[in-house]
C-alpha cells in the first residue's frame, strides 16, 4: 500500500489532520520527525501547517534547515511527490524547492475562512484527480499568506502553468495574481496556503449547499498523490 509521510516539526499543528487525510484518501500515513535523517521508505511527503519555531526569523525558515529537509530536497529532486500546506508551503519556498515567498497579509490581520479556489493545473502529482478547471472550497487560515515574487518569476509561473491553485472572489491576503498555490517545473512539488487536509471528511469540512460542514474537496489532493504513485509503479 502507498505510504505518505507527514513530517512533524516543533510547532506543527496540522500534522495529525494531514495523517488523517492520507488515511481517508486510502494510503498509509507515516509520522516522520524533523530531527531524523530517515524518510522511512515513504512514497510521498507532506509538510504540514502550523507555526514551526514560532515563526521566528521568517515563517518556515528555521524548519527548512531541519536535518530531515536534506532528505526531502534529495527525494524531491528524484521526483517524489512533496506537498507543503501553509507553513509547509513557506518551508518549501525557504528551502528553494519552490519559487517566491510568503509575506504578512496585506491587511495585517490573521484570516480564517472557507476559501473558494480554482484548480488551475490538474496534471501535477497533487491535483491529477481534479476535473479541469475545478472550483473547490477548503479552509484558509494564516497571517502570512501573501505570495510574492519578482515580475519575471510570476510571468514564468503563469506561462509554464505552474500556478496550481488560484483564489476566487476577494483576494484574502494580497497574493500577487491571486496565487494560492504553485508547483515546481516537474509538478511533483506543490505548495499552497489553504488547507485541503481540513476538507476530507463529511461532518468536519466547510459548509456546502447540501449540508453544513460537509465539504470534502480536499480529499482529491491526497488521492492525486496516490494515483500518481500507482501510475508510476
Amino acid at each position: 500500500m502507498t505510504s505518505i509521510g507527514v513530517i512533524t516539526f516543533p510547532g506543527s499543528l496540522d500534522d495529525r489532520d494531514a495523517q488523517r487525510a492520507v488515511r481517508l484518501a486510502g494510503a498509509t500515513p507515516v509520522a516522520l520527525w524533523h530531527g531524523s535523517h530517515s524518510l522511512e521508505g515513504v512514497d510521498a511527503i507532506v509538510l504540514p501547517g502550523g507555526f514551526s519555531y514560532g515563526d521566528y526569523l521568517r515563517c518556515g525558515a528555521i524548519a527548512s534547515l531541519s536535518p530531515i529537509m536534506a532528505e526531502v530536497i534529495e527525494a524531491a529532486a528524484k521526483g517524489m511527490p512533496v506537498l507543503g500546506i501553509c507553513n509547509g508551503f513557506q518551508m518549501l519556498t525557504e528551502a528553494h524547492l519552490l519559487e517566491g515567498g510568503l509575506i504578512r497579509n496585506d491587511h495585517g490581520g490573521f484570516i480564517c475562512r472557507d476559501q473558494k479556489l480554482r484548480v488551475e493545473n490538474t496534471s501535477t502529482a497533487w491535483t491529477n484527480q481534479f476535473p479541469t478547471g475545478a472550483e473547490i472550497t477548503i479552509p484558509l487560515k494564516n497571517g502570512e499568506g501573501g505570495f510574492i515574487a519578482d515580475a519575471a518569476t510570476i510571468a514564468r509561473l503563469e506561462g509554464e502553468g505552474r500556478v496550481v491553485f488560484r483564489y476566487l472572489g476577494v483576494n484574502p491576503n494580497g497574493s500577487l495574481n491571486d496565487i494560492a498555490g504553485i508547483s515546481n517545473a516537474r509538478g511533483n512539488v506543490v505548495g499552497l496556503m489553504p488547507h485541503p487536509e481540513h476538507a476530507t471528511e463529511e461532518g468536519f469540512g466547510p459548509d456546502t449547499a447540501l449540508a453544513m460542514r460537509n465539504g470534502t474537496d480536499g480529499l482529491a489532493v491526497f488521492a492525486s498523490a496516490i494515483a500518481s504513485l500507482v501510475a508510476a509503479a
Partner: peptide, 8 residues
C-alpha cells in the same frame, strides 16, 4: 543565506 531571504 539564512538571516535574510533574498526574495523578500
Amino acid at each position: 543565506d539564512m538571516f535574510s531571504n533574498s526574495v523578500i
